[in-house]
């Protein structure tokens, strides 16, 4: 009981009619971790977050937050969330919104403190409807800070923020995490996941397809691509080369994905009549698409 797991998902599935949004996720997140939930739209990120918040029930499996059911954890102010859009009343001022939500918890941070932490003290008297998208997002962040939650869930948290706001926001989040707050954020920005998370969980089609540090996840899809013009390419010899992952032939062009592209280049130029060589690094973007199988 002393080392309560922050998030525990056991074989969780969620169906909406015939659609299987989540197809069996097993997951443990320890206190103080900053975890990115990375995946394309429709991967099941938001559905999973909804279940962690008790907004929807899993079709099967068990969900626990701080060792409690999600609704219990929310009743105690242990978990809060920053949602993507909506969720605010336009006719309230920023301060009123924070005071309203804050009054609902048994114990809360002061209104002034969360306004300061979210960097919107100067907006306190403004109507929410007159705030920009980024300012509204900071207000949602302020609301999420109110109960001083042990677990903070963020669904695409920096949507609508400018570069500066984004940096300040993540600075604040890292600061929190260093004091023991667990943070789980959903994103489809690769750099954001890589830059700010200790751990990246890659989800696709309702399943976890990779789970590790940023460099581990990237290594899964490391390598470069050699493209060359080679009529009558000998696919068998290419594949036999060390470190070659795959070979594709499109007409007279051959694409070779390999870890050791130098060896492939040497072979192509030295031992065949291939020409017009091009070597490109496979970006994180492509690695991501590869792992999540979006291309197919």
């Amino acid at each position: 009981m002393t080392t309560t797991t922050a998030v525990s998902l056991r074989d969780v599935t969620k169906n909406f009619g015939d659609v299987e949004a989540v197809r069996g996720i097993d997951l443990d997140i320890e206190p103080g971790e900053v975890v990115a939930f990375l995946g394309p739209n429709g991967a099941g990120k938001t559905t999973t977050i909804d279940m962690l918040l008790g907004l929807s029930q899993p079709t099967s499996g068990a969900v626990e937050v701080m060792g409690l059911s999600p609704r219990d954890a929310i009743a105690r102010g242990l978990v809060s969330a920053v949602m993507q859009t909506g969720g605010l009343l336009k006719d309230l001022t920023v301060r009123e919104t924070v005071a309203y939500v804050g009054s609902l918890f048994a114990t809360t941070e002061s209104v002034d403190e969360v306004l300061a932490r979210a960097g919107i003290t100067q907006l306190a008297g403004r109507k929410v409807g007159k705030c920009s998208g980024g300012e509204q997002q900071r207000l949602r962040f302020a609301l999420a800070l109110l109960p001083d939650p042990a677990l903070l869930l963020l669904d695409e948290p920096t949507t609508g923020m400018d570069v500066e706001g984004r940096r300040a926001f993540w600075g604040e989040i890292r600061e929190d995490a260093s004091r023991g707050r667990t943070v789980l954020f959903a994103t489809h920005y690769l750099e954001e996941a890589d830059q700010y998370a200790d751990r990246i969980i890659l989800v696709s089609n309702g399943r976890v397809v990779a789970d590790g540090t940023g460099s581990q996840v990237k290594a899964l899809a490391s390598g470069r691509t050699v493209r060359a013009t080679w009529a009558g390419a000998d696919v068998e010899r290419l594949t036999a080369l060390g470190g070659v992952d795959s070979v594709e032939v499109r007409g007279d062009t051959v694409h070779v994905h390999a870890k050791d592209t130098d060896a492939v280049a040497r072979f192509l130029l030295g031992e065949t009549d291939a020409r017009d060589l091009e070597i490109t690094a496979r970006g994180l973007e492509e690695a991501f698409l590869n792992l999540t199988g979006v291309q197919q």
């Binding site: 309560t4 242990l78 309203y100 609902l104 929190d176 004091r179 707050r181």
Partner: peptide
């Protein structure tokens, strides 16, 4: 940043709101 008293991981000291969350502040707003 340092004025927060309790650690966020302190699960045991958490109370559940009374009256199902009803407060005069909310009614007033």
């Amino acid at each position: 940043l340092t004025s927060t008293v309790t650690s966020p991981t302190d699960v045991t000291g958490r109370a559940v709101a009374r009256w199902g969350g009803f407060t005069p502040t909310m009614l007033g707003i």
